[in-house]
Computed example of a mutant assay.
Amino acid sequence: MKIKVVIFDADKTLWDHYNISEFEEPIKIINRDEIEDIKGRKLKVFPEVRSTLEELKRNNLILGMATWNYPEKTERMLGILNLRRYFDVIVSRDFPFKFIMISEIINELKNRGISVKPENIMFIDDRRVHFGNVWLYLGKVKCVEMWKDISCHSQILKLLELNS
């Protein structure tokens, strides 16, 4: 079945930091892809993230985010990094249950009149541990482990058979 929705984890999937909820204001912008908080914690967006997100949007895919972070921190970081505009639905929670977050994304899309089945979804996360409950509770979501199943973001386009 055709993938219509691509859902990303954030930490260690889109950028190199493991927990953006730790970041404290003020945030200093080092460059378009790198920031630093007042305590010297740095975050760098992985190579190819922007071009991959742009290509996914160009191909009319719906982009979601399911991340274990405080919602206000997620929104703040996405805004500072100018990545917010790529995501149609963002679910950021202070708990690790990705299957619940993906359910929320499916429900939000349904509220917008977009019907999506689990087999229409690709979920990309750096931790395979989340996939079991996704499959158990949601069904045949295509789960991809970042850095194991694929080694760079442009490979997402190849998995979806999109030209990059």
Rank of each mutant, 00 (worst) to 15 (best):
I150R: 03
D33M: 07
E119P: 01
I90Q: 00
I80F: 10
L78I: 04
W135V: 08
T13C: 08
I150L: 07
N82L: 10
N69K: 08
N19F: 13
V144S: 01
E72F: 14
I80N: 03
G139Y: 07
R50D: 09
I27S: 08
H130G: 00
S21L: 07
L160V: 07
V129Y: 14
L136Y: 13
I62A: 01
R58T: 07
D11G: 00
E104A: 05
F23D: 00
R41M: 11
V91I: 15
K12E: 11
I90K: 01
S92M: 03
V141A: 05
R32T: 11
G113C: 10
K73H: 15
W15H: 02
V129T: 14
I106M: 09
K28E: 15
K42D: 09
K110W: 06
V45R: 04
I156H: 03
F97N: 11
L63C: 13
E75T: 09
L159V: 07
Y137F: 14
M1H: 11
K42Q: 14
K142M: 12
I29G: 14
N19T: 04
V91S: 03
I150S: 04
D125Y: 05
L157Y: 12
I150P: 03
R50A: 10
A10Q: 00
E22F: 14
K158I: 08
K2E: 15
V141W: 01
R50P: 04
